[in-house]
Design a protein around this nucleic acid. Structure first.
Length: 612
RNA sequence: GGGCGCGUGGCCCAGCUGGAUAAGGCGGCGGCUUCCUAAGCCGCAGAUCGCGGGUUCAAAUCCUGCCGCGCUCGCCA
């Protein structure tokens, strides 16, 4: 077990999990009686069956066949017989059976409803809390402030913000942090271009390469200044003076030259502000910004370099550059050396990153970094360096790139789809659809819902796929409002809201109806679809936790989609309002689902509108 | 060339700390609205889980070889 995974070894609160513990205990005893010498190993195979008819928990008995000299099915039958009386006598387990070599356990949906619906309705704010909370610093985005967000970069921001939200939903104390690269080559180029070029020159240079397109968002500085950045890059390729000028600036910044750092800041800050505006529209905000230069200015990078030189991995190159030899630490390839100090004594990006990590550990109990797959090696090198310095490693989430049909996105080359344009298009399309469906709403309401739907859809379409899987950007995929989408989930939530709203309009007191129902504790007569909904509801925290532990937001996406689907099925044949009469059992279920759908949406950055 | 990641129906994608009939969505075909939002629900068709070996009672899942795609191998960030 990785050290950080121990944070998850806490106690679950989900009833399903508690029940499974009870079942394990009883089965353990029975297995021992039956002659199983290692019941723990057998029980490790306890699974959740694929099909509802196979129960809610199942134990494969194949491995016991050899030692017990009986067929798996005979063992399963015997086991079921031994535990049936005890288990069905306890609350929560309605039936034990066996089939095809499995021993199947069925959860009592009535009991489960009593437990789980009550806790959700009584304490909706702690929904999703599943274990002891910890404080986290999640660093994400941290994009070079040289131009507008494009859809490739946005995967980091959306993924990162989703982790922030999921952790908060799980009860953690999270700080979202942006690491501002305020001293590298990229910013240097930007600063140089602003100091040495003007609008006409920029247009001229870009036009020569057929890149002189009118900015789609001229009022935003990120869209304006990226033209300077692109022009300077083009010029740099043909004019050595540019390289010289940039290098001079960058060197000065690395020596913590206050004047140059100030010039850099005035160059990038408006760009960064534009980028943050885009992110804010997506519901992504940061709690803190830390500048890279900070660790030069405060001298901590020098201390790091000093300490690294005492490492047994330390080496020195001919020109006085310092490195760690990582060959024996599992790094293979052409170069196994990790350089952390140039021949001239200055630091490198990765070195500052080490100082940054050391500082970050003073801020939180856990660190999470969201990084593109191009940072895999770098991250490994930094990790080994941290080991050498006795500094804990952070948790890292890597994601694969988003590609355009004609290749990798590049701000420098202008081969990009800007997030601002994607969001405009998504929200415009969504608004058009809402307008078509809801003739009763005024234009302000239409726009509000359209914006929520568009933004949520874009976010969902990015997080629904596993981070390590590459995405090929297609407009129709990015803008999809299909069944596997945020609007689908939002729609289910809006339905639940609609029911509650309707009752209130008719003069019913939803809260007290629900409170009375919960207090009565009578959950008899649940229909199949109601039972299925209850079971889905019961695994909310578990699904959230699994998504966090496995670092895969797409798992929680799937869960929430299933919850929405299950709610839709429930909705079909379990009416809350029947001929003006309220079925308060169905109301309680609907309300519990509404709370979970809303919380789940917030956890994924989907905006849970109450009407759509 | 070395390392890492990915490869699942026509398309997108889940499952990959091994377990029963590989889950969804799009597209295709066919149903369901006097009833709380049909952005919904139900059904049908469609899969040699990249290819070959191996381990196992059991492999999409683990090991191995190959093929394809991506990332990476800077005293750049």
């Amino acid at each position: 077990m990785e050290a950080w995974q121990q944070f998850y070894a806490g106690h679950g609160v989900d009833e399903m999990r508690q029940l499974s513990e009870v079942i394990r205990g009883t089965v353990w005893d029975a297995l021992t009686e039956m002659g199983d010498e290692d019941p723990d190993a057998t029980l490790a195979n306890l699974t959740t069956p694929r099909h509802a008819k196979q129960g809610d928990l199942a134990l494969p008995c194949f491995a016991l066949a050899k030692t017990m000299k009986k067929s798996p099915q005979d063992i399963a039958t015997d086991l079921a017989r031994r535990v049936a009386t005890v288990l069905t006598a306890i609350d929560g387990c309605s039936e034990v059976g066996s089939d095809g070599g499995f021993c199947n356990f069925y959860v009592d949906a009535q009991w489960l409803a009593g437990q789980t619906i009550r806790s959700i309705l009584n304490d909706p704010d702690s929904v999703g809390h599943h274990r002891a909370s910890s404080s986290l610093l999640i660093e994400h985005t941290s994009a070079n402030p040289n131009g507008p967000f494009h859809v490739g970069r946005s995967r980091n921001a959306i993924l990162g913000d989703t982790f922030v939200r999921m952790h908060r939903l799980a009860g953690d104390d999270v700080r979202a942090e942006y690491y501002v690269d305020d001293m590298g080559k990229q910013v240097g180029i930007l600063a140089w271009s602003l100091a040495n070029l003007d609008d006409d020159r920029v247009s001229e240079i870009l036009a020569a390469e057929d890149m002189d397109e009118m900015p789609t968002h001229p009022h935003k500085e990120d869209h304006q200044r990226v033209r300077y950045y692109q022009a300077a890059n083009l010029l740099k390729a043909v004019d050595p003076d540019v390289e010289l000028g940039v290098t001079k600036l960058v060197q000065a910044s690395e020596e913590a030259d206050a004047e140059v750092l100030a010039i850099f800041e005035s160059a990038y800050q408006p760009v960064l502000d534009g980028m943050l505006e885009t992110l804010e529209r997506l519901g992504i905000v940061f709690d803190s910004f830390t500048k890279e230069s900070r660790f030069i200015v405060d001298g901590s990078v020098d201390v790091i370099m000093d300490r690294l030189s005492n490492s047994e991995l330390h080496g020195t190159a001919e020109n006085g550059a310092h490195y760690l030899e990582l060959e024996d630490r599992g790094v293979q390839g052409k170069s196994t050396k990790f350089f952390y100090q140039r021949g001239d004594g200055s630091s490198l990006y990765a070195t500052r990153d080490i100082a940054y990590h050391e500082w970050k550990w003073t801020e939180a109990q856990r660190l999470v970094n969201i990084l593109g797959e191009d940072h895999r090696l770098q991250s490994k090198q930094v990790g080994i360096a941290l080991d050498e310095l006795d500094i804990r490693n952070p948790e890292v989430v890597f994601y694969a790139f988003t590609k355009l049909p004609d290749g990798k996105m590049s701000t420098r080359r202008g081969n990009v789809v800007y997030m601002d344009n994607l969001l405009d298009e998504a929200c415009a399309r969504a608004t058009a659809i809402v307008k078509e469906m809801r003739g009763d709403l005024d234009s302000e309401e239409l726009a509000k819902i359209g914006e929520a739907v568009g933004l949520s859809a874009v976010r969902y379409n990015i997080i629904r796929v596993s981070p390590e899987k590459g995405i090929n950007f297609r407009w129709e995929d990015a803008l999809s409002f299909d069944s596997d989408s945020a609007p689908f989930i939002m729609y289910s939530h809006a339905r639940a809201c609609s029911i509650s709203r309707k009752l209130t309009t008719q003069g019913h007191d939803v809260k007290s109806l629900v409170a009375n129902e919960v207090a009565s504790g009578n959950w008899g007569g649940l229909s199949d679809t109601a039972s299925a909904l209850v079971k889905r509801i019961a695994t909310f925290s578990e699904a959230l936790d699994a998504s966090i532990v496995n670092q895969r937001p797409n798992l929680f996406c799937s869960y929430l989609l299933s919850l929405a689907t299950e709610y839709n099925r429930f909705y079909r044949d379990n009416h809350v309002l029947i001929d003006g009469e309220v079925n308060s059992q169905n109301l309680a279920l609907s309300e519990a689902a509404r709370i979970l759908l809303s919380a789940g949406c917030s956890g994924l950055g989907i905006i849970p509108v109450e009407s759509m």
